[in-house]
Design a protein around this nucleic acid. Structure first.
Lengths: 275, 275
DNA sequence: CGTTTTCATTATCGATCGATAATTAACTGA
DNA sequence: TCAGTTAATTATCGATCGATAATGAAAACG
């Protein structure tokens, strides 16, 4: 260790305030595009050097960082990020103490400032058929979630081992999937379970997975999909309603059969069931 | 270009054959654990320095690299990888010209040397009910695919922008999903479409997604799941068979209604609509 | 106007990265 | 046993990384 210590290049005077025309903005990175012009004469206006209020700058860094990291992942360099911002790299450190703090802020914005309260109302509105509610909900929900930005940030975070995803998963299970199970029971005239069963939750995950994975196929695998988004949602809901309905009917039949083991008339009772 | 040419640092004598006990294995990395012992006396046996045949070493690098990159992603360092291998970093470059070549080899092994030919036979065996075939297939398939190794490598590759995933997706659609759609039609006594429709393919993707996403939840989000793997598969298949069956029945009814447009009795038939 | 505050840049630092050259040491066959 | 071959190591290189200090310049304030 102590190996890389002998740096001290020791050419201290050579800095030299050269007469070069003060090539603004990140000399080390802007080099390339600057060299297109002739070095002396029309040296390209120095890119006005925007001076923003602290608040605005912070916001801009945040939103542009999300774009950048969504593209290249959180291992993307701060210099490259600064280039995408149109500023210089040390500026980042005026607004965020270090790279990880910036990333944590991104998680917060992307994952937890997105759920719209009106979605809760929409899902709970029993004056409308559940099928309609879910179609409308998923169309809106996927408008924000099924985007390259959101999905890629989400997976970069997950693969990095952030606990953020676990928290988000909980949110989905509590706010959405458990609710779907309960509402579905209600609409079928069944007693909604006070605590949602494991099997039912996994079934609801099947619905969620089908819809979400459509976005994964598009924005992570860059594979082609075969239906427009909203038709895909309708398709997934068709499958879910038909399938889950049938599963509940069968379950009903079974428990009924167990509840009346002696009395049941031998062969009959094929598909009626008291729903 | 030609940039790295002027290497030849020319401090030739200074190397100096120091009397230190030849601390084997990657001095820069092994430093930490070595410093636990006293520097001179019982200097820990130098970790036998295994000398393998070129073939064996290459294989070992490959398999251990998969483990390593599955953990930390492809941005993991070659030094860190070498530590995980129990060797030194430059050794990697005896067997792979550069890091990316190693990664490409990993893709090949992980994605395309895994599909077992017997799965094709299993899926095509019409002497058994499709439901049984799919349960058995998915139990075996997920034994290799629903592992932290496979899933994480898969997503790291996808996020890195490799076209590999696109190829794999195609394989899944052609070898598996299209086949499921066709077999399902056959078992329902329907004419199997010579080219699988967009809607049917998306429905098959719903099945695949539900099963695959179970692994994503476990190995990427580290979230808890609610059923053991094979029960989850049974559950997803229940949903799919009930739901897809119902969808085909309805579709059948609709096309029949369209085929006989004049004869239908006026008021009835509420929700069909001629699409 | 001049001073102070605040935003932004230039110039580096030490660490670490992928990669190469030179050297050491284990195996092989005569 | 000894030379030749080949596996594996040590020692670096140049590039780039995240981060900091010093400097410059635009606003804000008097």
């Amino acid at each position: 260790m102590e190996r890389g210590a002998g740096r001290r290049k020791a050419k201290p005077e050579q800095r030299a305030k050269k007469a070069r025309p003060r090539k603004s903005r990140a000399s080390e990175t802007a080099e390339k595009e600057a060299s297109v012009n002739e070095p002396g004469s029309t040296a390209r206006v120095p890119a006005p050097k925007r001076r923003l209020s602290a608040e605005d700058r912070r916001q801009e860094i945040l939103t542009k960082s999300i774009e950048y990291f969504a593209k290249v992942g959180f291992d993307g360099g701060t210099r490259d990020l600064a280039r995408h911002l149109g500023t210089t790299q040390p500026l980042l450190y005026r607004y965020f103490p270090n790279k990880d703090a910036l990333i944590q802020e991104i998680y917060k914005v992307v994952f937890f400032d997105q759920w719209k309260p009106q979605w809760d109302e929409l899902l709970a509105d029993r004056s409308r058929p559940l099928r309609d509610r879910l179609q409308e909900f998923y169309e809106a929900y996927t408008d924000t979630i099924l985007t390259p930005l959101w999905i890629r940030i989400y997976f970069f975070a997950g693969l990095k081992g952030e606990f953020i995803n676990e928290r988000y998963i909980k949110l989905v299970e509590e706010r959405l999937l458990s609710r779907i199970v309960r509402e579905f029971h209600l609409e079928k005239g069944l007693e909604p379970p006070e605590t949602v069963g494991d099997r039912d939750l996994e079934i609801a995950w099947d619905l969620q997975s089908g819809i979400f994975y459509y976005g994964v196929r598009r924005y992570i695998y860059h594979a082609r999909t075969f239906l427009p988004k909203n038709e895909m949602i309708a398709c997934a809901l068709d499958l879910f309603f038909a399938g889950y309905g049938e599963i509940l009917v069968r379950r009903q039949r079974e428990t009924a059969a167990v509840a009346l083991p002696a009395k049941r008339r031998a062969g009959r009772q094929r598909k009626v069931s008291p729903a």
